[in-house]
Design a protein around this nucleic acid. Sequence first.
DNA 1: CTCAATCCGTACCGGATCGGTCCCATATGC
DNA 2: GCATATGGGACCGATCCGGTACGGATTGAG
Lengths: 151, 151
Amino acid sequence: MLRLSKKVDYGLILLSRLAQRSETASAREMAAKYDLPPSMIANVLKALTGAGILVSTRGAQGGYELARPAGRISLAEIVEALEGPFSLVDCVGDEVICRYTEVCPTHDPIRVVHQRFHDFMAKLTLAEIVGDARFGTLQTADGHEKAHLPG
Amino acid sequence: MLRLSKKVDYGLILLSRLAQRSETASAREMAAKYDLPPSMIANVLKALTGAGILVSTRGAQGGYELARPAGRISLAEIVEALEGPFSLVDCVGDEVICRYTEVCPTHDPIRVVHQRFHDFMAKLTLAEIVGDARFGTLQTADGHEKAHLPG
DNA sequence: CTCAATCCGTACCGGATCGGTCCCATATGC
DNA sequence: GCATATGGGACCGATCCGGTACGGATTGAG
């Protein structure tokens, strides 16, 4: 399905939080605040740290903060950090092995789609996402403005 | 995972084929040509027909053809026909029920992303996809131009 | 220097979804 | 009437997701 995993879902919430305040925040703290599964939040934060999107401080009074300004963190990065390499279909990864490399039906329409999706995500920054939401520039089809929380 | 289902994968191949030749083609015929699972191809074509993207002719010498010009068939339509309603996360569908509608962490950054994804797909037409692939305007990261076939 | 808070790495599990197959009914051309 | 097609389901095994858990390492506080 064309759908973000819960990890990314949670990740965006956490990152948005960290983007709006410069203070560090702990996993426990954020999980409690947004009423999200603590273990899962911990794992998400670990992954984001491992990918270099967050930096962590260990020990008491420790926590997480953005490794870079939100304007330099792309959606593509976030997705790849939490879901692994992005590939819309099997044939569009790094190690692509097509069964019939030569005789492709339409000379690869799907690779085009993949590339466009990736470009789109690479250009969409955390700053833009947070900014758009904050200033309410989003117009839903039915004109509603609703808040979001997973579940 | 942020990934197209095989149905959409196959669907794009089939639609590309139908977009390039105006003659009707049968399920059996296309499945054989591209060496794809016949039953699956049949199901995909049924779904696309049900959604009004294809029109079918039953009986001997029957088959499928595009219901409209490829320029008027969007990726969003195709995805929704084969995967059901598009929603990047649970909270962004038609019948959205958030647990905490009021106190959303960042005032809904994810809905923004959803909306952008949808707009992106709604504006990308089958004609563009096929066209780009045919004229080789796609540049992959490593400079390769490879064909695509699922599996 | 001990303890609590916090991150780190990884393994584990039930359930949902996907990819794929199959069957039977209906329609149509030869 | 018979082969060729689509129409509409049900069905099943494998995979992946969402979520949990546990032991270890690091650091600040008292």
